[in-house]
Design a protein around this nucleic acid. Structure first.
Lengths: 146, 146
DNA sequence: CCTTTACCTCAATATAACTTGAGGTTTTAA
DNA sequence: TTAAAACCTCAAGTTATATTGAGGTAAAGG
């Protein structure tokens, strides 16, 4: 069964990422592999799902560090079930909901605000330093209010 | 009128950014200043609005480079008017609308998708490499489809 | 006047998320 | 069997967005 153990190149191809990315994710503790006798990486097929989830989460603005933390809740003695993944999904869905509403507020502020005097700072909802969800798009994004 | 020329420290304080950030923005061509006889930076008060707009745009996921390009459409021989700013605002508002709808699609996919078999790649809307708006949250964000 | 802020420049450091390259080994396929 | 393709490790490079520090100058207040 060549199905039960995938080489790094195979995984890369199927997941649509570079081999170097897989090395990188492994170094970061996001995925795991074992080695064959020749020291080459071998993967269980469920690594593909992990990578999918990583990519999906990144699209939502979740950092690798946060993804790693979320993955920590997965069982490491068995292959994660659908249920296990659903737990992650619902966490991130909440965060997405918040993010979307933040974007909406931003958008609503935009027209009224950019043209008026209030954008000269402080009171403007568009430029509110207190807004902790404001980090979208640059640098790591805080999804949980730890 | 100490109102017509602001020192870098004054601007930094009023805008809520570091002095070093102002140096940085100036080096990037996002703001401008002139020098007094002692080689210190002096700013017109409208720099405050520029900084507001930069910060607001960043919250929407616009990169400094894109902000700079947008600023290029502003008049540089006179202080930008409300109208000038509105042009920028409406551009970004469209981008925001797209971004929001993308996030919504993401969210809608999330529950149905993460638990099912499709997340094993390719056909899953959550993991679709063709989705050019997928860059949200890490690295520069493409807002225009240039 | 003189001390304390505030400023100046330029180089280096920081972080996230990867990619690239050098130098060497293992697999695979003709 | 042997050449090409795939792998390996480890270090350095890349981009965006700043921040920090060193070494020196200018301005402001008592």
């Amino acid at each position: 069964m060549q199905d039960a153990h995938l080489s790094v190149g195979r995984v890369a191809k199927r997941a649509g990422v570079n081999v170097s990315t897989l090395h990188f994710y492994e170094a970061k503790g996001l995925i795991r592999s074992w080695r064959n006798t020749g020291n080459q990486r071998r993967y269980k097929p469920d690594v593909l799902r992990r990578i999918s989830v990583i990519k999906a989460a990144q699209k939502m603005g979740v950092s690798l560090e946060e993804i790693k933390q979320a993955f920590a809740s997965l069982p490491n003695n068995r292959t994660p079930t659908t249920q296990d993944w659903q737990v992650l999904a619902s966490q991130w869905q909440q965060a997405l909901t918040m993010r979307i509403s933040y974007m909406k507020r931003l958008k609503d502020s935009l027209t009224g605000c950019i043209g008026c005097g209030c954008l000269s700072m402080n009171s403007c909802p568009l430029y509110n330093p207190e807004d902790t969800l404001g980090d979208i798009g640059s640098g790591p994004v805080i999804l949980d209010k730890k």
